[in-house]
Design a protein around this nucleic acid. Structure first.
Lengths: 192, 192
DNA sequence: TATATAGTGGACTGACCGGTTCACAAAATG
DNA sequence: CATTTTGTGAACCGGTCAGTCCACTATATA
């Protein structure tokens, strides 16, 4: 029995995730990934197979650690009446925070949507799935927030709100004011 | 007096625009731009100064030839009651068309929003300006569509509709059904 | 000590990148 | 024909890329 793996895979993936989030898949270089993870390329290739393999792990990490925790309260069996308000308030706070990755780089997945990597089936499926998950979660939050709402109106509002999220994330690295104003519109719609 | 420039600058920029639209700034290579424009790199550099100079011209071309013509009816002094419905119907048709660039690649500017090039001030300013222009135009269309609407509601609806546009464009290269459904939601909101 | 595996560092492969240079050809005018 | 400008093609510069290879070191267990 030989040497045991010394690094934490999740920790390495988090570091790599930050690089992909900032630069995108294509512009994230091996030297930069080496620096961020603290591993040499031999170790990276041994653990993940390829740069693309590391990217796939980063996408999964992003969904599990950044996206889904924020959607959790909406997907809870006892989702509260204000869970959806909290979701947007939390999102707004994240976008407003001066030194957060969300604030500077928007959404890793939505950024990938506009990049060449989106042509990879697995990547576009992941992004499409994220959007559906977002809509579905918001729909549950809307139902809890407005118990009497009919299905058609609820799904429509879910489409609108998820689109406001996408727009805000897209604008995050372009114009902070417009991004925050977009989230504010979501909150206004919910408070009407 | 010597040789006259033989190529049409606008035509060259259109060809280059198609390459940047499909690949993004970073992944658009000089050889690919040479192939698409039919010019050698010497001529490209002579006419545009750099790859970035060509990209800037492509962005201007995109705004002037793709974006603004579609917003024109909304910005007209005698904007019709159904101009905004026409806008979304036309957008939907473009996204539904199997072999159009919009259908395959979404929006050149919004794709750039998630790319490293967005860190260039001039690029992010162009994207922020496009979003404001879109909102402003939609606001005019909303006013014509619903003459009695108050300012607050109109601006809110403009934010919502422009976000639906952004979401649809982002989803265009990811999931055609979701992209079209997003535009449908905009039309439903207007027909309520 | 032997065995087995993780991890490194750097050289290497083969390819490509944006941008520059320049001799030469093409084309327009005088 | 001379002059001037556009446009080409290819070599070149200096650099970078993802991925491979391998001798070597480190580490854990028996």
């Amino acid at each position: 029995m030989g040497r045991v793996q010394a690094f934490e895979t999740d920790e390495v993936v988090r570091s790599a995730r930050a690089v992909f989030w900032e630069h995108g898949y294509e512009e994230a270089s091996l030297p930069e990934l080496e620096r961020a993870t603290g591993l040499s390329r031999s170790s990276i290739y041994h653990a993940f197979g390829s740069k693309r393999g590391l990217f796939d792990a980063a996408v999964a990490s992003y969904l599990n650690e950044i996206i889904r925790p924020r959607l959790l309260p909406l997907n809870s069996p006892d989702v509260t009446e204000i869970a959806i308000l909290d979701y947007f308030t939390t999102l707004r706070a994240a976008l407003a925070q001066p030194d957060s990755q969300q604030s500077h780089h928007g959404c890793l997945l939505l950024n990938a949507a506009g990049a060449p990597i989106a042509h990879e089936s697995a990547v576009s499926v992941a992004i499409a799935g994220y959007r559906q998950e977002l809509k579905s979660s918001l729909s549950l939050g809307i139902a809890a927030h407005r118990p009497g709402i009919d299905d058609v109106a609820r799904l429509q509002l879910a489409t609108v709100l998820s689109s406001l999220v996408i727009a805000a994330m897209t604008l995050a690295r372009i114009d902070k004011e417009q991004a925050l104003a977009t989230v504010d519109t979501a909150l206004e719609l919910l408070n009407n």
